[in-house]
Amino acid sequence: MAAPRYWIGLFLSLALAAGSMVDGWYATSPLSRRGSGSAIQILMGDSRKILSGFLISKADSYFHRGFYPSIFDQQAKEDDNHLAEAVSGHHEHHENETPEEHAKHSAPSAPTTTPSKTGSENFLARFGKNFQPGHAHMNGRGGEERELLPWLKLAIEMDPHRVEFYPVAAFWLRTQLTNVAEAESLLRSGLRENPNHYLLLTELGNLYLDDRKRPDQARFLLEAALKQWQTGEESKTLPDVGTHQRILVSLIRLEKEQKQYAKALEYARLYQKFSPNPHATEAVIQEIEAAWRR
């Protein structure tokens, strides 16, 4: 049996070795890098993106007052996802909708029961519908939209680079809940995570135009958004035309209000270039010209 001092020596050597190993591991681990991400980011890794998708579908389900098709129904009912449409901002059916138009499109409607698409539902499935919410939208009364916010906030926290979530949350905050300060704060935090993104600049520009009533800041932001769109999107095979049109519509409105008709005409002509309905745009151009002449 070795003397106790040898055991103590061995123990100290092992402790020293273990300590240097842990120190080396810690120096290279993400935990040691300050500001590299929250504990959730480190622990969950890329699974946050999947969870973020789930959370946004939860918000969509809340928008439909608990009605949400299961994965087995989704193929047949893809066109029911209104919040996802608002998120994408350039969906097929409402390609040119602004969030304001989307709210109009989806706001107060009487709750209806979803009819069976196949018509072949068995009696158990039909009976089961008595225990599930029918297809309905939030009615917009009493700030019901605030119920979406926890899911939107969590979705953003899970994946701060999914830039399309910010305008959705900011839209509900500033329009239905008149919480402009929080909407602005959210968009600014989005810009910190995704610097100079045209979608966030557009929403912030609209906030300054409609809610803050500060045209100079709005112009600066919307022009920056247009520039960013032209840099990043114009060359793409499938550019985000919907947002481009929203930027231009806001700029035309702003310049008209400020009586800067030359600029308004310039934006209207640019809008016409991408418009699916150039004749309607021609009428807008004539309207601006008439206002200019007056």
Binding site: G143, E147, A169, E182
Partner: peptide, 12 residues
Amino acid sequence: LNFFNEQGIVRY
């Protein structure tokens, strides 16, 4: 929990 300083969020 606080979500955007909005009061009365109850469904979650």
